[in-house]
Design a binder for these strands. Sequence first.
RNA 1: GGGAUCGUAGCUCAGUUUGGUUAGAGCGUCUGCCUGUCACGCAGAAGGUCGCGAGUUCGAGCCUCGUCGGUCCCGCCA
Length: 586
Amino acid sequence: MKTHGCGEITKNEIGSEVTIAGWVSAVRDLGGIIFVEVRDKSGLFQLVSDPSKNPEVYDVFQKLRDEFVIKATGKVTLRPEETFNDKLPTGEIEIYPVSLEILSTSAVMPFPLNAEDVSEDVRLKYRYLDLRQEKVLNCLKLRHQIVKTIRKYLDEHNFMEVETPVLIKTTPEGARDYLVPSRVQPGKFYALPQSPQIFKQLLMVGGIERYYQIAKCFRDEDLRADRQPEFTQVDMEMSFVEQQDIINMVEGLLKEVFRIVGYETPDKLPVMTYQEAMDKYGSDRPDVRFGLELFDIGDIIMESNFEIVKDNLKKGGIVRGIKIPNAAHYSRKEIDDITKLAISYGAKALANIIYLDDGTAKSPVLKFLTEEQAAAIKERAGAKAGDIIFFVADKPKVTYDVMGRLRLWFGDKLGLIDKNAHALLWIVDFPMFEYSEEDNRYVSVHHPFTMPNKEDIDKMETDPAHCRSIAYDIVYNGNELGGGSVRIHDGEIQKRVFKALGLSDEETQEKFGFMINAFRYGTPPHAGLALGLDRVVALLAKTNSIRDVIAFPKNSNAKCLMTDAPAVATEEQLRELHLRLTVKTN
RNA sequence: GGGAUCGUAGCUCAGUUUGGUUAGAGCGUCUGCCUGUCACGCAGAAGGUCGCGAGUUCGAGCCUCGUCGGUCCCGCCA
């Protein structure tokens, strides 16, 4: 139907006849002469109607409106030099069509294309029109490039793509499952996978050795700008490997992916332990594009008369501080606001010491400290006249969290973040378990199939909080791109983990029996990782919402504004599924 | 589940402070004029249950309460 894409025609085609087809992007009717811009996936091209040159198409030109679909044939000609448009790749050429056909008309657009400020709900309702915008199209093009690159790389490294089921058995632990009622088995439900975790491990038992999948995953949790109810993971698993093999493989993969946006990643990425990340950055996904590292003054406080904090430390709490340079001039209100911010992050209080320009220090906490202790704190902070230090003393989780967020807030406020930087690093040695106040038991930090660190393995029973696992995350500019672990391939260790998680033998058997059974038949050591594809694409596209890189995303209430899903089911459907509603739906 | 914020023309917004005649602007649409535009230009016109409901009032876009919807955040997300 067409010989060229609109954006593909160059001056080399001058004199030859081409046929193009696409959407009318703009009509500029000057009375006699009419200019029309045609747009397709490849770009824009200008058509001209001139009564003295191609009068046979004038009537059709006059009928054209925005977003009509048309087909035009004519010879490519050079524009008069004074009318070159240097904003367009095709700005020096045009066509006076000898034939012009309207293939489809268009209703008036509900919102202007390529305008910056159209609200997202309007765009999502008409997502099929939104996709015509260059910016949106470019996001999908980038996503395609990235997926293509990933497939090529993994294929070249002997990975095999295998599809795993979407209707699966619900699994305990982790996020809330989406449930699908079974018609043929009344009262029973499938779950949609939160990830293909169990299946990819069983593929290893099955001898696949190297597996990957661009896998849809589902989690029924409340959404955020970077969270969708269904999202895509680049899921991979390898047999006969250790942590370093996965790291090497993924570094090679990321090198290819980042090359697409013109960034050459280092051959070896930095590796930081979880503990170091928490101590220095208050986060397991530290943004290392800037400093403002946290410091510990617990030992100094313990020598002092600061009884409230000392009590806290004795109960297992910690103290972390952050130094803000040249901030001593902050007003009382500014400091109050920062304190409120820290409280909103979960702190009970935020202490500060202001180092005035005259060399003296001002703080309500100085009365608890000797001069030596105050000097030690100043030195620990690396503070000088004109700086402020802020610190929090609380349970480790709260202290890290508050100080980590405060650090990010200051990094942003002080403009310390280089938006063009690419800070990739590995976080390793994650803890195996964390205590859940809600469930009154330990839960997996990663998942229950993660291998405990050999040195810590007996801590599973004696000191679960300090048992490290062989789990790793890849972090980019303060975002978790993905994570994985070395898996347990020994049934006995697996049973000990389930026990540490407070699962009884019966529960374990009922929920994971098939897996434990599978592991009885010769399980290769294996390890894997999954990347959050939507997030990877969003970050490389420099957009802050993953909705921008998903063709048909849902809104923050998990609703599709275009199709109005989810929708009510008919009485007949419910009856077939043996379901009765406890809410009125109309 | 909680917090913040928004909802006025097809789109983006002003008007809400201090309730008062017929609710405005830009873009878009339609009509006319216009032969080198590329955000074409010029002239004119159409276009509104002010999210919805109740209340206060002589009178509500504006005040009160409720409700629905959008966005962001907390909780949640192995």
